[in-house]
Amino acid sequence: MPNPHLLLWAGLALMGVFAASQVLRYPGQVFWWVVKSAVLGCLFVFAVNWVGQYVHYHLPFNPMTAMAAGLLGIPGVAALIVLHLWLYA
């Protein structure tokens, strides 16, 4: 049986090649998709902070939280909230 780490790295390499090929094939679409995701993530984080001010909760705003919220949507925002409460409570 192959080494599990080797399978993990091979899978990551394949995903990297696929992502790079998509960026090279459709650079404009990928750029606008990333921009749209970042803007939606910013709005989600701002919405959480706006609602959170009533219960004294603040989700830190940085590029990583905005992109995670934008790429993963509402479940990503919920995951960010749970991780923040779990790690910094």
Rank of each mutant, 00 (worst) to 15 (best):
M1N: 13
M1F: 11
P2L: 06
N3D: 15
P4D: 03
L6Q: 04
W9Y: 13
W9G: 00
A10T: 10
G11A: 08
G11P: 02
L12F: 15
L14K: 06
M15N: 07
G16H: 00
G16P: 08
V17N: 02
F18G: 13
A20E: 02
A20T: 11
A20D: 05
V23L: 14
L24H: 05
L24P: 01
L24Q: 10
R25L: 13
Y26P: 00
P27T: 05
V34S: 01
V35A: 14
A38S: 09
V39H: 05
L40F: 11
L40N: 00
L40A: 05
G41A: 04
G41C: 01
C42H: 09
C42A: 14
F44Y: 13
V45E: 00
N49C: 08
N49E: 08
W50Y: 08
W50D: 03
W50H: 12
Q53D: 12
V55T: 09
H56T: 13
Y57H: 12
H58T: 13
H58Q: 14
H58V: 03
F61I: 14
N62A: 05
M64G: 07
T65F: 06
M67I: 10
M67A: 11
M67E: 03
G70S: 01
L71C: 14
L71F: 03
L72G: 03
P75T: 07
G76C: 02
A78E: 10
A78R: 12
A79C: 08
A79V: 09
A79I: 09
V82E: 05
L83N: 09
L83W: 09
H84W: 12
L85F: 04
W86R: 13
L87W: 11
L87G: 06
Y88C: 11
A89R: 14
